[in-house]
Design a protein around this nucleic acid. Structure first.
Lengths: 349, 349
DNA sequence: CAGATACATTATATCGGTCGAGCAACTATA
DNA sequence: TATAGTTGCTCGACCGATATAATGTATCTG
């Protein structure tokens, strides 16, 4: 590969001049010299070596992004992560527009900090983007502690002040419930995540908002919680079916497509036809959900916009400018498909 | 961050000695000095700066891996890429074990070479891993031309000699068809990809292998082709339903889960019950396919092993050792679920 | 015409490592 | 005892950029 020396020799100037011309800094260079340098650089196909540049400027122009460690390959429910693959794509693209690249790495799920620590100490990256943050997240704690630049897709412990962008699950679920209400539903139930799930609780709050605003009752048993599995969806549906017909929900909101699928599957097994007798809303717009029978109405996270907002935020931080905003909520998009219909005349069979 | 100078000062030796100790090179260092250096490095938490090391050794320890450019976010069928997200994870993990990291980047789908060229010329990466290679792939051509190190998940033009690992789609589909034959099927059809698809043709060849080996006829109309959409699956099924009942296939093999879903959806629409009246096999084991009704029997690509094999290959290439093998086929795993059953007594309704 | 000023360009230190060459001090050999 | 070889460590070039300080040259001023 040609170096700056080759360009200098070719153009008959010093390497400093070449550097000035190519970096268009505020140093006077005669038009003739500039032309000669540019021409020489073009001719020999010169491109500045990033490693050398990075060493000099003590940066890397690399943003660390960790994959989730998936459960063992054949674990049930293990291979469902419908959002993050695309998120990484949009993140990479936004980063490139800002002159950065993504360095993707993995870490053992039990203890992430040594991996982050090593990347910091060896000067591998300039910053991190976190995903899937939870309450009391050890990565957030560690990076805050180290005062190392990062942004996060997702919130964490409320008292911690750090830059994040998150899907507004509360507003999203609220919009979903309002949509059901607009279809005529009054008996709407929700299947959430366990109580220790931050985002699960936000989404649940959105349900409560909408029900309260519409003056609809939330009877005992309408709010169920379960882990992120298809099985949990089946079980929740079975529980609702145990209620007397005139008390059963006519519509169900969930916090994930996977759980919505469980509900749909169990409903079919029990002879309840989703999209006719029952309405269901998922969350995530996972691949394939549009091909379910009926196609699933769901809340799509605006991961493209989230990625862009995160990079904008990170850029400001790395340039030591004050970021415009450091806590951004993005409303999900309600993707209307076939699984929601007006409630049937009489209660469920 | 502490540098090698800090360690040298702390230990009372020269930076060269520190370097020798820490890199355990074959240079004589007294046990006492070694101890002092190690102790000093430990005490101040020294880790060698990778940028400096890389500049000196003119390498980056980074492997470039490009994402597919997905179609616009809301394009139909656009967000289906069930394999590559996990592949990237396994690739990153294998790379880390070999002392490398993954640099992920994107490129405009119409012209990938400038992006690859830029990464090469700026010395951003040491090598590339390609995925989704096609016949006459411009990236393969370009990298071969530049003699830049790379390995590929997937084959390309047969005459080109380059290192690749691929799923043995032929063996996989053959195994799938043999499984159907073992269930008692004799009228087995296949839905493949258009003729210009390399992997589609390999998979089709596996179908022919199995049918021929079992002495089963392949009547006109049993081999259909279509693009990678759910719609293509629906259309293929409709075509088969136009055949006289006693000629219709009792089992269908496909080259992708998405097309299998199309077949299942159209079958349901026409009152044919998959998993009772008809057997269907997919390809990929996409997320969610296990929750379809019936759960889809499919061929799972061993992407974890493929990623590992690719990195092993690449490591040898980068160390300028002759790689053990440069063309490796990995058989897919047949994931048996509910969509395949013995053929019904009489022909399809 | 000396001296100041602006402009254009170059020399060189620097970033933080690696590694070949070289130098003491000590041991082995003739 | 002189020479050669070994061991243990240091010096300094080098990787390829960037940026500061210095230098050379032309122009302007008094």
């Amino acid at each position: 590969m040609p170096t700056i020396k080759d360009v200098a020799r070719e153009a008959g100037v010093s390497i400093a001049t070449v550097s000035y011309v190519l970096n268009k800094k505020a140093v006077a260079v005669s038009p003739e010299t500039r032309r000669r340098v540019l021409e020489a650089a073009r001719r020999i196909g010169y491109r500045a070596n990033v490693t050398a540049r990075n060493l000099r400027s003590s940066e890397t122009r690399l943003i660390g992004y960790a994959w989730y460690e998936p459960p063992p390959y054949d674990a049930p429910f293990g291979r469902l992560n419908p959002i993050l693959d695309w998120f990484a794509f949009y993140l990479a693209r936004s980063a490139e527009q800002a002159g950065y690249h993504l360095l993707t790495f993995t870490y053992p799920p039990d203890d992430p900090t040594p991996t982050y620590d090593e990347l910091i100490r060896t000067g591998r990256v300039d910053a991190f983007v976190l995903t899937g943050t939870v309450d009391n997240d050890p990565r957030v704690r560690f990076l805050l502690d180290q005062a190392f630049p990062f942004v996060s897709f997702g919130r964490s412990t409320e008292a911690w002040d750090f830059p994040w962008v998150d899907t507004d699950g509360r507003a999203g679920v609220r919009a979903g419930v309002e949509y059901l209400i607009s279809l005529g539903h009054r008996r709407i139930a929700i299947l959430g995540w366990p109580e220790d799930s931050l985002s699960g609780n936000f989404r649940l709050a959105g349900y409560c908002d909408a029900m309260e605003a519409a003056g609809l009752p939330v009877p005992d048993g309408y709010v169920l919680r379960g882990v992120h599995t298809e099985q949990a969806g089946r079980e929740a549906f079975a529980r609702w079916m145990e209620m007397p017909p005139h008390e059963r929900p006519t519509a169900i909101v969930t916090v994930s497509d996977l759980m919505a699928i469980g509900i749909m599957n169990e409903a079919r097994r029990q002879g309840v036809q989703v999209g006719r007798d029952l309405s269901v809303i998922g969350f995530d717009d996972a691949p394939m959900t549009e091909y379910l029978q009926p196609a699933l109405t769901t809340l799509q996270q605006p991961i493209d916009e989230i990625a862009e907002a995160l990079i904008t935020m990170l850029e400001a931080i790395l340039n030591k400018e004050p970021p415009a905003e450091t806590n951004v909520l993005m409303p999900p998009r309600l993707i209307i498909r076939e699984s929601c219909v007006p409630p049937p005349e009489q209660a469920l069979p």
